[in-house]
């Protein structure tokens, strides 16, 4: 309990910890929202791919001194389009196309980053360092959250119908491809933002784990998004506490906390929990 008091005391004293906490909360909300759509559309692997594929964009942005979001977005979208292109123009299945494209992008990014080593820290990009977030980063994060919320609110019914019944959406003339790439764009923005808190490697966990936890707990898409965002925020805050107290990397601390929530839901969810199901069966 003493460590919790220390954490709260730290929050009142240190500006960097306040910034970290707010960033973690904002990133938690946006990854819960976007993650819900990622798992409902069966795109978990795609989420993983885009998050890795932004690495060369990050490197190029560092080298040229341009905005990180811009560089990363270009490479994230490029990867999404390449994956679509390879899937469409060959007999290969989508997961194979994803595997080829994202590993190549990641490898390229790795080499570029090591060339730009002086300006950046590879370890922090890969695993996150939320305690080093600047006020400028915080503002960018807040802007991205606003964009994500606006996107989901404005296109809620289009996102629902394309996730649930894409053929129906196409049959009434909805431009499902435009929406898909729009969502990929949003996913890229979230990825670059979440890079600060959990790092590139573990972003997919923030997208999938809280959303999967929520999926086990509700039967309504809007509730699922709310619950996912809530779990994601709790995981971020609790993870940050562990990171601060035990000097763990923030990414793994946050992701493990989210995994514990998932485990609890997996075992005890009234809807799908394996213990509850067993009891009902007996």
């Amino acid at each position: 309990m003493n460590s919790i008091a220390l954490f709260i005391d730290g929050l009142t004293k240190y500006n960097f910890l306040q910034t970290a906490l707010i960033t973690a909360i904002l990133v938690g909300i946006m990854s819960g929202i976007v993650g819900s759509f990622i798992i409902l559309r069966g795109m978990s692997l795609m989420g993983d791919a885009i998050s890795h594929a932004v690495l060369p964009g990050v490197a190029v942005a560092y080298m040229l001194g341009i905005n990180l979001l811009l560089g990363a977005s270009i490479f994230g979208l490029l990867a999404a389009m390449l994956i679509g292109f390879v899937t469409m123009k060959s007999q290969l299945k989508n997961d194979t196309a994803i595997g080829i494209v994202f590993s190549s992008f990641f490898a390229l990014g790795f080499i570029l980053i090591s060339m730009a080593e002086s300006a950046t820290n590879l370890h922090h990009i890969l695993f996150g360092n939320v305690l080093a977030v600047s006020d400028q980063d915080l503002i960018t994060t807040a802007i991205v959250l606003v964009v994500v919320v606006l996107f989901v609110v404005l296109f809620y019914k289009e996102l629902l119908i394309t996730s649930f019944d894409n053929t129906f959406a196409r049959a009434y003339g909805l431009k499902t491809q435009v929406l898909h790439y729009g969502l990929m764009m949003i996913l890229t923005l979230v990825t670059v933002t979440a890079l600060q808190t959990v790092g590139i490697i573990l972003i997919v966990a923030m997208l999938i784990t809280p959303a999967a936890t929520a999926y086990l707990l509700t039967n309504k898409m809007s509730s699922m998004i709310m619950i996912a965002a809530t779990f994601s925020v709790f995981a971020s805050v609790i993870g940050l506490y562990f990171s601060f107290t035990f000097n763990w990397a923030s990414g793994p601390a946050i992701v493990l906390t989210a995994a514990v929530f998932f485990l609890l839901a997996f075992l005890f969810s009234p809807k799908q929990g394996i213990f509850i199901k067993k009891r009902a069966a007996n």
């Binding site: 409902l40 629902l160 996730s163 649930f164 039967n219 309504k220 898409m221």
Partner: peptide, 12 residues
């Protein structure tokens, strides 16, 4: 398994 009920499905 999509989280949607009958009424919301018809509403689409």
């Amino acid at each position: 398994t999509f989280p949607i009920n009958v009424l919301d499905t018809v509403l689409t």
